[in-house]
């Protein structure tokens, strides 16, 4: 089987971001970037399937500016075989991303596409589901376990009421949650080896997809600030505050 994994380069999840004072967006210049954490779990799942002998080829695709090469290299160092960068400097909406990925799926014909469940910059949680619609494939989102059973996948999903298990026939789309696995840190020799693996670069404009935004971003603003209130010194004091609050609450 062949697996395609879509990975996004985002502001590192440990960075405390800053909204630009003019409200045009979030400051990303000079900020540490890395692979979206959820995508790492998707790559790890694909590499584990290859190691288990279920997969001959793991192809990585990322859409973004030239430096997005770095996250493809990270995935190659983790054990993926080949990379494709769909290069664009434009900030794209999720529908456009999904349409570009659908073109790649069309060309590569993977049995399984793995994605992260959400990108921690836009927090959209769209692309996997959209890609599933555009390629008319079944989907299993928010996966915390994936089991190959014949030509089906059994996927355990993290949902609001707990977990649930569904089966989907291949070819299919799966999006990864954080409890799916523990992504490996590539050792230095693997990082060196990754540079020798094939990495194709293609301009996004070449894929014949309308990339024009549908939404107009009016402004980006910081959330209301919270500041420290008061410290209390005893359990009795805290209990009194909680009791007052609770007794004053209107029932809904």
């Amino acid at each position: 089987m062949k697996i395609l994994v879509a990975v996004k380069r985002v502001v590192d999840h440990n960075v405390r971001i800053r909204v630009r004072p003019d409200g045009t967006g979030v400051e990303t210049t000079g900020v540490r970037m890395s692979m979206n954490p959820f995508c790492k779990h998707a790559v790890e799942a694909a590499v584990q399937m290859a190691e288990a002998g279920h997969t001959e080829e793991v192809v990585i695709v990322s859409i973004g500016p030239k430096p997005a090469n770095d996250v493809i290299l990270t995935a190659l160092a983790m054990g993926a075989h080949r990379g494709v960068l769909i290069e664009t400097d434009q900030a794209l909406e999720t529908l456009a991303i999904a349409k570009l990925l659908a073109k790649v799926v069309d060309e590569e014909k993977p049995d399984l596409v793995l994605l992260g469940k959400q990108a921690v910059d836009d927090d959209s949680n769209h692309v996997g589901q959209m890609l599933a619609a555009l390629t008319d494939r079944p989907q299993a989102t928010f996966a915390s376990a994936i089991k190959l059973a014949g030509d089906e996948l059994e996927v355990t999903r993290e949902v609001d009421s707990g977990r649930e298990t569904i089966a989907i026939p291949l070819p299919a789309i799966v999006t990864a949650d954080l409890r799916l696995n523990t992504p490996r840190n590539a050792a230095l020799p693997m990082v060196m080896k990754a540079r020798a693996k094939p990495l194709a670069i293609r301009p996004a404009s070449e894929l014949g997809v309308d990339l024009a935004p549908r939404l107009k971003v009016e402004k980006v603003s910081p959330p209301a600030e919270r500041s420290a209130g008061r410290a209390v010194n005893s359990v009795a004091e805290l209990a009194a505050i909680i009791a007052d609050d609770v007794n004053a609450m209107e029932a809904i």
Binding site: E93, T94, L95, A98, S124, N125, H126, V127, G128, Q129, M130, L131, A132, A133, L134, Q139, T141, F142, R157, E158, V159, D160, P213, R214, L215
Partner: peptide
Amino acid sequence: STTGKDVMPRLAAKLDVQPVT
């Protein structure tokens, strides 16, 4: 919700709409 997140982007792409979520 996890249901809305699962379904609505899939619907949006079917309808060629960029969703706002």
